[in-house]
Every structure is written in structure tokens, then in C-alpha cells.
């Protein structure tokens, strides 16, 4: 891991909690409110870390392990992304499978931690989480497959690194479709409107928030930070597709990444202000729609 890699990773880890803040602020501004500060999540995390945790008597070590595995797997997945626009700290052929696998590992840990409480609410959230991700994961792989076809490289460092600029020159339509599809996935995987409303206050309508109902204190801090990091990871995928920056110097490339992430945050906020969330039963259709975008991209490339 070089200095440039370490800097880019550190920057990603530091700016991640600002992303939900940017989205919320955009939504507030567009709906004519003042809204919470952009840095609200940092304050929340600081407060939660200082608190103690409360554990249910029903829970076992699975509950206590869940948050650590969730955050750890997301940090490990970040190591596979070419954050400086060239290559990843740990990249190899087929590393995109490891990327998806680590996201799945985090989800598995979180879902089991939820089920460990024996609460019907958390069971409900866990059930919804695995249901919607069952549609999101194939969509993610279709995006990856389109990128492999467009760039001719089967590693994240390749398909989001130097070959991206060339891919835009001969497959611009496919690349835009993949970028759009990834944005739908970002909304789905991170429980944003129109799939889930992070601001909802009714347990029966929640997806992500309800799995973590019994987590508290530092454990909840890990999960909240993990959610922000996951948003940043998907944001980095989108930035990698739309803003090829292999020609820039490393600090400039990292700067563009931060700028791009902020834009993604704004886009999420805009979507949240102009759309209502769809009914739970229609979420699979929505995600499948996102997958179809990637599929069109693949078909254009297979001509």
C-alpha cells in the first residue's frame, strides 16, 4: 500500500459520514426547511461512542459480533477499490467477487444479529433486507459484467481505473446505463427513498433501521458508520464510472473523488425530495428495473 493509496483510503473513511448529511441537507433545502447540519452524523457517532451498550438477555455472541464484522467487511471491501483512480491497494483478477462477497458477509452478520434478539420487528427487517438484496446482488454483478465487457479487465482496479476513459470513447451509452443502474443500486442497498425512508418513525415500515432496533451505544455507532461507509463505497463505484481520473495526479484524483461523492450525496437528496417511497411489494420490480438498465448496457456491448 503506497502513500497515495493510504491517503485516498483515509480520506474516504473520514468523509463517509458527511454523505448522509449532504443528502439530508439537500432534501431540507429543496423542501424549504433549514435541516440538520451536514456534520450531524459525526456528532451522533461521538455521542454514541461515549455511551454504554444495552444487550438483551436473549442475545448471544452473534449479536455482539455483528457490528464489528459489518464494519470490518466494509473497510476490507474499500481496500479493493481504486480510490486514487489508478489501482487498488489490494487488487487481483476477480476481486469484484470478493467485493460483493464482503458486502454479503456484512449483511449476513447484521441480519443474524437482528434475528438473535428474537424480536419480530427485527425479524421483519432482516427478512426485508435479504429479500431486496437478493435482487440487488444480481444487478450489481450485471453492472460488473458490463464493465468487464467495456474495459476488457476483470478486476476493479481495471474496470474503474485507467481503461475507463477508453471505454467511454467507444461505449459511452453502455457506460451511462451502468452508471445509472449503479445509482439505483446505491439507493436500494443503502435504504434510501424510494426504497426505504431513513427518516421514517414507524417500525412496521422500516427496512434497515428496524434490524438495528436493539443495538445501542458503541455498537450502534459502528453500524451507523458502516451504513455511511457503504453509501460512500457505492458512491465511489459511481464516481469511478463517470469520472475517470487515471491521468490526474494522486492528490487531484482524490480531490475529484471527494467532489464526486458530494455530488452523489446531492443527487440522493434530490431524489428524496422529488419522489415518494414505493410500496414494499414493488421494491423488487424497482431494483429489477435497475438491473435491466445494466442488461441493456451489456446487450449494446455484445452487438
Amino acid at each position: 500500500m503506497s502513500v497515495a493509496h493510504a491517503t485516498a483510503l483515509a480520506v474516504l473513511l473520514i468523509v463517509a459520514p458527511a454523505l448522509p448529511g449532504i443528502a439530508t441537507k439537500t432534501r431540507a433545502v429543496l423542501t424549504g426547511r433549514r435541516g440538520a447540519p451536514v456534520l450531524q452524523l459525526y456528532y451522533d457517532l461521538g455521542k454514541l461512542v461515549r455511551k454504554g451498550s444495552v444487550y438483551s438477555v436473549t442475545t448471544t455472541w452473534v449479536f455482539r459480533t455483528g457490528p464489528v464484522v459489518l464494519l470490518g467487511s466494509l473497510v476490507a471491501a474499500a481496500l479493493l477499490l481504486p480510490l486514487d483512480g489508478r489501482d487498488a491497494p489490494a487488487g487481483f483478477s476477480g476481486d469484484l467477487v470478493a467485493f460483493a462477497g464482503l458486502l454479503a458477509l456484512g449483511r449476513f452478520a447484521l441480519v443474524l444479529a437482528g434475528l438473535d434478539t428474537g424480536s419480530s420487528f427485527e425479524g421483519m427487517g432482516a427478512s426485508r433486507e435479504v429479500t431486496f438484496s437478493s435482487f440487488a446482488e444480481p444487478a450489481l454483478f450485471l453492472c460488473f459484467a458490463a464493465l468487464v465487457l467495456a474495459t476488457g479487465d476483470a478486476s476493479l482496479s481495471g474496470m474503474l481505473g485507467a481503461p475507463v476513459r477508453v471505454a467511454w470513447s467507444h461505449a459511452a451509452a453502455s457506460m451511462s446505463l451502468v452508471g445509472l443502474s449503479l445509482f439505483v443500486l446505491l439507493l436500494a442497498e443503502n435504504s434510501r427513498v424510494p426504497i426505504d425512508d431513513p427518516a421514517t418513525h414507524l417500525e412496521l415500515t422500516m427496512i434497515h433501521e428496524v434490524i438495528v432496533l436493539d443495538h445501542s451505544g458503541p455498537d450502534l455507532a459502528l453500524i451507523l458508520y458502516g451504513s455511511a461507509l457503504k453509501l460512500a463505497l457505492f458512491g465511489a463505484l459511481i464516481v469511478g464510472v463517470f469520472l475517470p481520473r487515471a491521468d490526474l495526479a494522486a492528490p487531484a484524483a482524490t480531490g475529484v473523488l471527494v467532489l464526486g461523492l458530494a455530488l452523489v450525496g446531492v443527487a440522493v437528496g434530490v431524489v428524496e425530495s422529488v419522489m415518494a417511497r414505493v410500496r414494499l411489494t414493488q421494491v423488487p420490480a424497482l431494483i429489477t428495473g435497475g438491473a435491466v438498465l445494466a442488461l441493456f448496457g451489456i446487450i449494446l456491448l455484445l452487438r
Partner: peptide
């Protein structure tokens, strides 16, 4: 920082 407390599931 603090010892975890135990309780019933919420």
C-alpha cells in the same frame, strides 16, 4: 468506555 447493561429485547 462503560460496562454493557442487560435487559429484555425492546
Amino acid at each position: 468506555r462503560r460496562m454493557p447493561a442487560t435487559s429484555e429485547t425492546w
